[in-house]
Amino acid sequence: MFNNLLVAIDGSDHSKRALEKAIELAKLEGNSNIELLYVVAGNKSKSDVLQYGDSDTASMKRKRMLLPIEELVESAGVTSKTTVLHGKKGAAESIIEHANEGSYDALVIGSRGLGAVQTMIIGSVSHKVMKYVEMPVLMVK
């Protein structure tokens, strides 16, 4: 039933909890796989390049950040795959597009990512995703 999951992660605590729940869900059945989706939106590119110097280093740091997350999935006996999308659009749009193009049993996402202040200004990515993704969505608080 739920053995092909897409999990949107951004490194926040909410997304970590979302991943834990996704792993629990995937373990209910054998032969499951989880695709980890990480979106680098425009402003993220700016702050990452400023922080790490150039695009190559920023990509390397992201890979290093994603590695333990992949291992966490694999150690639970679930196959993992990682997709990094460079967001020409916003994070929400990229997640929605990618989710609707693939064939997943469900999308798992944290209730909020970047923090309360930014949620108020930008509008919740999770809210948009809930509205436009055409599949079951598990939102983890």
Binding site: V40, G42, S45, K46, D48, V49, L50, G53, D54, S55, A58, S59, H86, G87, K88
Partner: peptide, 14 residues
């Protein structure tokens, strides 16, 4: 050059 790096990163190209 800073902007070029940011565009590199946004488009994932060199």
């Amino acid at each position: 050059l800073l902007t070029a790096s940011i565009v590199d990163d946004m488009t994932d190209t060199d």
